[in-house]
């Protein structure tokens, strides 16, 4: 049984991942900004835990990805409640349509800040903490959109590309010191966030993503495309020459 802090467990893939972890008996500290949602998720996870509900070891702490000054207190609170922090999982982030981002520089700044700058700041704090105790897990959700620039998500993709680059660097630098970094690259997944989009072929389910991510955590992988098929799709996309990408306005 291990103890993890998780930012983004109230929705989508984060919710499913937290469920699979709680169901196998892990202790979790849910980080988030909406206390009512955190509490509802905590109850759900406590019932799912094989331990008796009152000792399920599911906690909450306040944390807002847009407010870096909440990061350190949140990690501190998580470590305290869990007894020992074995890792941090970040599935939260912001998302907006390209058109909206182009129309508002304020919105764009917010997205870039949350998905790149602040996520990196949070990971740096967690990294320090984990290295001090001899290692741990840093599992962060990036996106296949960061693999190759795609016209309708080029700004969002740029933030995710930066994030993946950062995570790769952590892996190169600190793996031997016991810090395992997992860069999760989901393809199109049917969640609340994508409910208004028509799913493309190979669209995945959040529960399948959660299963695969958990297996990757157990293996100690550094990177995972999920659902798996997206690894193959992105392999082809990365190999496609630029002239073709321009022509099809990829």
């Amino acid at each position: 049984m291990s103890g993890f802090a998780i930012l983004g467990a109230t929705r989508g893939m984060g919710k499913q991942l937290a469920r699979r972890m709680a169901e196998r008996g892990d202790s979790l500290c849910l980080l988030g900004r909406d206390p009512a949602r955190l509490e509802a998720t905590r109850t759900d996870l406590s019932i799912r835990s094989p331990h008796a509900e009152e000792n399920a070891g599911i906690f909450t702490a306040s944390c807002d990805l847009l407010q870096p000054d909440t990061f350190e207190p949140a990690l501190e609170s998580a470590a305290k409640q869990l007894g020992r922090l074995d890792g941090l999982i970040v599935t939260a982030g912001l998302f907006a349509d390209q058109a909206q981002l182009e129309a508002s520089s304020e919105l764009l700044e917010q997205l870039l800040t949350a998905d790149f700058v602040n996520t990196v700041l949070l990971c740096e704090l967690a990294k320090e903490r984990l290295l001090k105790q001899g290692g741990g897990l840093l599992c962060v959700f990036s996106s296949v959109a960061g693999d190759r620039a795609r016209t309708p998500v080029r700004l969002y993709g740029a933030a995710k590309a930066g994030l993946s680059h950062y995570l790769e660097g952590l892996d190169h630098a600190y793996r031997r010191e016991g810090l395992v970094t997992l860069d999760v690259k989901p393809g199109f997944v049917r969640t609340e966030m994508t409910a208004h989009l028509a799913p493309p072929p190979f669209a995945g389910e959040p529960s399948a993503v959660a299963r695969e991510v958990l297996a990757a955590i157990d293996r100690g992988s550094a990177r995972i495309y999920t659902p798996r098929i997206w690894g193959l799709i992105l392999w082809v996309i990365r190999l496609t020459p630029r002239t073709i990408m321009r022509r099809i306005r990829f």
């Binding site: 893939m13 599935t91 982030g93 907006a96 909206q100 990036s142 309708p152 998500v153 997944v189 493309p200």
Partner: peptide
Amino acid sequence: APSSASLPSVGNDEPME
């Protein structure tokens, strides 16, 4: 995929607007 729509994306991210 619909050309105006944004994807691929991390399904867990919150829509901002």
